[in-house]
Design a protein around this nucleic acid. Structure first.
Lengths: 339, 339
DNA sequence: GCGATCAGTGTAAGCGCTTACATTTGATTC
DNA sequence: GAATCAAATGTAAGCGCTTACACTGATCGC
């Protein structure tokens, strides 16, 4: 409150350089409009004073922030890290800054964060997955804030998105698993409520069972949060139930890592006693022993393209084009053929 | 640019509620000053219009943002994730919002980000480690922006910090390693230049060698970026050199994970053929096979305390008190005693 | 040599909010 | 019922910046 008021302003710079504030502003924003001699004077004044433009004031006057907000469920594990990093890099080359915040998978926090980022002047928003209150979309629409949805793909939605088909990808993996002779499948899924990606993946497994004449309703499914520890606990539970599965399919690599850890702690050999699969193909997957069979998602590619498209939307060069990326299966040591 | 101008402002709300802008503002910021009947009118107008205060304008007028900025080297791996998550949670309970940005370990980008966050009105800043241009500290000081340094501890610095002694912690681990009979130590270190933590850890190993009458100058050291892949490559290099080490001590768990992966790919057994150690004790450490011997750092605790202290500083209730946390050794399967 | 043109610069009007200060309201007191 | 005073509300001055518009003095064509 009683903060030192020695922070230099545009006025100070102008006075020091002996020009008007308009000229200083132009030096900073469109230098080509200012003759070199003047510009030098101004720049050296800026330098000497250690002047940094006040962002709030700038936004108010100019209505553009060159800021993109991203709201992700969590930073605590690596699921979004890689894609987000690429997203940021790409934004940076285009002159935009990224602001990140996380929601801990709580919709009400997400809504709050959206408003906060919008109030902060985000020119556009990156959101994860579809499932959210339609009011939020209305809010963004009213404010004409472009939003792009990543990590999911649904062509029939009216929101632009970039991602892959979670359901089809998981179905493909499940089909492979079943074709290897696994009949007794158990699942450790992420929380499905409010999470279209988790839901899609679970449905994908069920699709595959049905296709292969198996009964999805008898399949043990545990829903739990996307944490290693949760994966471990869920694996425990699964192992205590009578119907002992030959394969545990996990909603993502993090859950799979937890399951594998617990398997080892229970002296179960993966994949000899039990097979385990993941989803995402984050770095984790390759350093596990045995390496994890999973679905590879082109995270970096997705982040990069998302940045490109979102910037296009912000600059009104696009109304938002959806793009589907291909995932691919990575068959590694954690899955064993029973044939 | 041609953005729809249908975004409601304070004025709109005031008009709709039939009161002055001051009253609306008070309803939002200190509701107890407004009588209930008026407040209800105002709130319902806010509701109907879908009004969100313009952050920039608010900052300009009020000089406070309740925003804390954090600048971390990377979000791509989990080193900072856990601590940062705790940091954010604690901030949230105290009514502050966190803005995160990352620097990819590049000092010039860090300086840029500092300015950007300050311009955005961050009331305080969380920085990682000491090593940075003194000018940056001067800049923050001039602007009276409190900054707290985390993940490092140096009591003699004039910057407030919260962390642990990287050098002593690593020395303790190295001493244990040596006491287990390892004489041939090799190191995969993070890039030391501009990174006091990486440097401290490396020095800690050398300290231990000296204490035990070994020659640190003959110890193979590879400096590389904190990535799994880099750890793997470095391990390769180390194995190709003639002096085959009995233990590879890594600057952090991520490097160690890479080293272990490569060891497996080279058909070297850990720990029978070679021992490997890490630093940080991120979740990774426990899911590796064998589990990684490492130094446990209380990341969450650090994040939580950092938030508390930084808020205190911002609210001028503290000038910045440094706090040292204890690390501890986690001896796990990746380190084998030769005695 | 004179007006047209134009690059370079200055002037000043906001942008949407908070808050010191002024004013009004209404309860309380005698 | 008038005087008093605190509580509730209104008025208006900025906060630091951008930018439309106005101005100045060269440069140019004829």
């Amino acid at each position: 409150m009683a903060r030192a008021r020695n922070v230099p302003t545009l006025d100070d710079v102008a006075r020091k350089a002996g020009v008007s504030t308009a000229t200083v502003s132009r030096c900073l924003n469109s230098p080509e409009q200012v003759i070199e001699r003047t510009r030098n004077k101004v720049m050296s004044a800026v330098e000497q004073l250690g002047y940094t433009p006040n962002f709030g004031a700038r936004v108010m006057a100019a209505k553009r922030t060159f800021t993109i907000g991203a709201i992700i469920p969590t930073m605590e594990n690596a699921i979004f890290a890689r894609g987000l990093q690429a997203f940021q890099e790409e934004l940076h080359t285009r002159g935009y800054t990224l602001l990140v915040s996380s929601t801990a998978y709580r919709p009400e926090i997400e809504a709050e964060q959206v408003r906060s980022l919008v109030a902060r002047g985000a020119d556009g928003l990156l959101l994860i997955g579809y499932a959210r209150d339609p009011e939020l979309y209305a809010y963004l629409h009213q404010r004409s804030i472009p939003a792009l949805i990543a990590w999911a793909f649904a062509p029939n939605s009216d929101q632009a998105c970039i991602g892959f088909d979670n359901r089809a990808s998981m179905r493909a993996l499940a089909n492979t698993v079943i074709s290897m002779g696994h009949q007794k499948v158990a699942v450790i899924s992420g929380i499905v409520e409010g999470n279209d990606r988790a839901d899609g993946r679970l449905q994908g497994i069920k699709d595959a069972l049905v296709e292969n004449g198996l009964d999805p309703s008898s399949m043990p499914v545990i829903e739990t949060s996307y944490e290693i520890e949760s994966g471990a606990k869920a694996f425990d539970q699964l192992m205590q139930s009578p119907a002992s599965p030959s394969v545990v399919m996990c909603g993502n690599d993090v859950l799979a890592a937890g399951a594998m850890r617990r398997a080892r702690e229970l002296n179960l050999s993966v994949p000899d006693d039990i097979s385990i699969t993941g989803f995402d193909d984050i770095e984790l997957a390759r350093i596990l022993t045995p390496a994890l069979t999973t679905v590879h998602v082109p995270h970096r590619e997705m982040g990069r393209r998302a940045a490109a498209e979102l910037v296009r939307m912000v600059e009104q060069k696009s109304v938002g084009v959806s793009e589907q990326l291909e995932s691919s299966l990575k068959l590694r040591g954690s899955l064993k053929s029973l044939n």
